[in-house]
Amino acid sequence: MLVDSTQIIEALWETLWMVGFSLLFSALIGLPLGILLVITRKGHLWENAPLFNVLNGVVNVFRSVPFIILLVAIVPVTRFIVGTSIGTAATVVPLVFYAGPYIARLIENSLLEVDKGVIEAAEAMGATPNQIIFRFLIPEALSSLVLALTIATVGLVGASAMAGAVGGGGLGDLAITYGYQRFDTTTMYITLGILIIMVQGLQTTGNLMSKKIRRS
């Protein structure tokens, strides 16, 4: 094996760091975007066809670019925001561009599942649009929203592994530089094992949280 345990632990931290921050920022973008994609729809709370079409189109554009290409394509933006296009921090930017629209779609789906009747009841009791969103729509969809964010997180773990391509660090970087390029199979399997455990843990936690929310 060409790496020692401190290198692995460091890579693990980098992965957690990348996933954590990009999740935070993409959720901050994806949540409002997802809500807007729902309420600007025809016949919904804040029907606005032009806005919906623009948002819908933008989300689709970003969703159609493969991450590995997005990573390179937005280098100027990354450089503008973080000052560099190499390293862990620089990877967070494309990850957010990748996961933000993805989360928006997932959120949109969860919110669309909320029974229209509930929204009608909310309107009938004189709720304001804000109240409808925050006291009816989101609470009713919460358990499904948690599952959606879990899916997004797992997706981010996978995408962060590609960050190795721009020297982004993390477990994926380790697996590519040592496992693939230098034929160090052990390192490859160890990183793989850690990723598997991580994803299992995330999914299980997400499932538990979602279940708990449904019942409390």
Binding site: D115, E120, A121, M125, P139, L142
Partner: peptide
Amino acid sequence: IGMIFQHFNLLNS
């Protein structure tokens, strides 16, 4: 003006 519905429309959460 109160309103009740065929499918109740309660908040399940």
